[in-house]
């Protein structure tokens, strides 16, 4: 029963402005699948009250990494924690991505990279990665991503690197015809556009979604989203859903 434990912070550094990478040392033997998440909560506090669900960025031996952007007071507090501090972790939680059998497409928008990086790394040279950011300063792990993926297409909104435009445009020009399963994480507007592009096509597409969450284990029913089979819990029935299920 070591799904709930205290982990020691090895490092917690800003990579680019408000984007941080936190590295934890854990005694938990729980293995994590790409797409699963943990709830991180600074050790003793009641305000902010809830922990924050973060996708597993990397899991190796006794080290767990999470990539996050400061969005509100919870992530702000998280960013202030230092090396050596203890943090409460619960996980791994949720269903991860269905594991790809061969080559696959990944579409990542901005901080959505946090959810798909581990998938790309776990299947070296199998991912055709379409990675969209606002400008080249926001681009993360370029060299590593180039190494792990079979093909890397970067799109920047301002055109400071790679294609100028949004990542879904590049995908529909260069990725769609590959006819490979798609794994995606990014802002809702990106997910909606992917849904529109592949509508009527028989391409499997799995997307990781985000919702405000409390328990993380399917008990409180707080994180539901509407699907074509009624409300589903992001924490346990997700966070990865078949795009066809989602009401976009």
């Amino acid at each position: 029963m070591n799904k709930y434990s205290k982990a020691k912070i090895k490092s917690n550094v800003s990579l680019k402005e408000d984007i941080y990478l936190i590295t934890l040392e854990t005694s938990s033997t729980q293995q994590a699948k790409p797409g699963q998440f943990y709830i991180l909560r600074p050790d003793v506090r009641l305000d902010p009250f809830l922990g924050r669900p973060l996708s597993v960025f990397e899991r190796e031996d006794n080290v767990l990494k999470f990539l996050y952007r400061i969005k509100g007071k919870g992530t702000k507090l998280l960013s202030n924690l230092n090396e050596g501090d203890l943090i409460q972790i619960t996980g791994p939680l949720g269903k991860g991505y269905p594991l790809p059998k061969d080559e696959f497409i990944v579409i990542a928008g901005g901080i959505g990279l946090a959810s798909v990086y581990y998938l790309i790394k776990s299947f070296p040279k199998k991912a055709h990665l379409f990675y969209g950011v606002r400008n080249k300063e926001e681009l993360l792990f370029y060299d590593l991503l180039k190494e792990f993926s079979k093909e890397l297409c970067v799109a920047t909104e301002c055109g400071s690197l790679g294609y100028q435009g949004v990542v879904t445009e590049v995908f529909s020009q260069k990725g769609l015809q590959l006819n490979l399963p798609i794994y995606a994480c990014g802002p809702m507007i990106m997910i909606k556009e992917i849904g529109r592009i592949i509508e009527g096509k028989e391409i499997p597409c799995y997307v990781a979604v985000e919702e405000r969450m409390a328990c993380g284990v399917g008990a409180c029913l707080g994180c539901v989203i509407p699907t074509n089979q009624g409300f589903k819990r992001v924490c346990t029935e997700g966070p990865v859903f078949d795009i066809k299920e989602l009401i976009l």
Binding site: L46, D47, F49, R212, C220, G222, C223, V224, F231
Partner: peptide, 19 residues
């Protein structure tokens, strides 16, 4: 089926729910 989301929001030292 319960209520339409969003169903929860964190508040100081607690949370509001409408499940």
């Amino acid at each position: 089926e319960g209520n339409p989301p969003p169903r929860i929001y964190e508040t100081p030292c607690g949370m509001i729910n409408s499940i």
